[in-house]
Design a binder for these strands. Structure first.
Lengths: 230, 230
DNA sequence: TGTCAATACATTTTCGAATCTCAGGGGGGA
DNA sequence: TCCCCCCTGAGATTCGAAAATGTATTGACA
């Protein structure tokens, strides 16, 4: 085991990744017996990791009944979206007002990476390319990193994580074929570089809303199905 | 043990309360041996409770070295204050725009309780009265409760918790004798009832800033001392 | 045949000992 | 005398079994 790293931390990171990438589905129960085999560790470590995820809102704990991945719901998606718009735009305004040249450079660099990464997996169509998902997260993180408040950045980041759960499903629906995601990112980047606060906020708001709308318009049924999936 | 409640949850709540009320001091180390005696429980349960508090930002974990109460610092206080102003005012605007009559009533009621509770303990001067602290938290919670977004409310609440750590110290300094805290609360209540968004935001901003300013102006030395207190 | 209670099972929760890691002190070599 | 390495003790971490709890099944009674 690497120095200064406990097993509990590793398992925590593994679990978190498996939830965020959809290997563990929303609503799915998480019995200790199964997890113990999957991650080859003891109950104590698992409880510790799961407790942390509960506090993050990614896992739900029902006393004496065990843990489960937080289910998705239409109502939560609406709440999450409006909160993200509120807080990410707040963060964005701070970033535009306080970010330095190094920050601008990181925005440009991460946009370039994202722009050159294909969005869909080549081998398995209708599936998000993992590299693209990473680059996408990195671009948005870079934009918000210009905000000088550590706490505000952390909050924004945790909200973005929560919405990863939902983003995973939007591509399956195929209702986004007409959408120009790359263009939305470009608009955000340009407004940021021009230090145009209102323009940037508008671009980010649109970007966040579109994903949610695509989900809500086309597949409330499927949404419900995934959350009922016990 | 009460139905549907685990021991881990109770210990978590106890620990949290002890930190928030200052019975465990910022920066203080938390060895399992001591905690085991204090809360009469085993290591496993303690780890689970502490992990949750780490995720909340109230406790710090250093792998292989154990846990400690999160230290306070001038820089963190500044960051926390500005973030609170950003987010609590956001929450407040939503509350004023969406809160119903029941909400107004809760604001009025909790203000009354706060107004009639003496701020300082009678027996031990220069100490915050626990009842007042509770009423104070309840009043602010009531005001923000009008915000329809659960997530935004939760975020605002967790920020308020974090600043409890600091609020505890401000009374010891005695630099607030000229301040009319009750008047500040009254101004906030009145603006809320008048549904005057900007006025309410101004009142809340002033209220939050004052406590921080009192702390920063009068006692950076004492602040540092408490955090070095290992 | 339907309902209720008692029992058996599966799962979570808790514990205390065994294991491992880090920090400090003492001894040997340069 | 100074520096490096090993040894030791205090403490955190991990484990697996014991206890507690909730759920499903079976059988008896109305």
């Amino acid at each position: 085991m690497a120095r200064g790293e406990t097993r509990a931390e590793r398992i925590y990171a593994n679990l978190r990744g498996d939830i965020l990438t959809g290997r563990l589905l929303p609503g799915q129960r998480l019995p200790f017996a199964d997890l113990g085999v999957r991650y080859s560790t003891s109950v104590g470590v698992l409880r510790e990791a799961l407790s942390r995820l509960v506090e993050q809102g990614l896992v739900l704990s029902e006393p004496q009944l065990g843990f489960r991945v937080t289910p998705v719901s239409e109502e939560d998606l609406r709440d999450l979206t409006s909160t993200r718009i509120d807080i990410e735009t707040l963060c964005l305004r701070h970033a535009i007002n306080h970010g330095d040249i190094a920050w601008e450079s990181r925005v440009v660099a991460s946009f370039h990476t994202l722009d050159r990464t294909p969005e869909l997996a080549t081998v398995q169509p209708r599936t998000v390319n993992e590299d693209w998902a990473t680059a996408h997260a990195a671009f948005h993180a870079a934009v918000l990193e210009g905000c000088p408040s550590r706490r505000l950045r952390d909050i924004a980041a945790s909200l973005r994580d929560a919405s990863e759960l939902y983003r995973r499903w939007s591509r399956h629906l195929g209702s986004e074929d007409t959408r120009d995601i790359a263009g939305e990112h470009r608009a955000l980047r340009d407004a940021v570089l021009a230090r145009d606060e209102d323009q940037a906020v508008a671009a980010l708001t649109k970007h966040i809303s579109y994903t949610t709308r695509a989900l809500l318009d086309s597949a409330p049924a499927e949404l419900m199905a995934t959350s009922a999936d016990a």
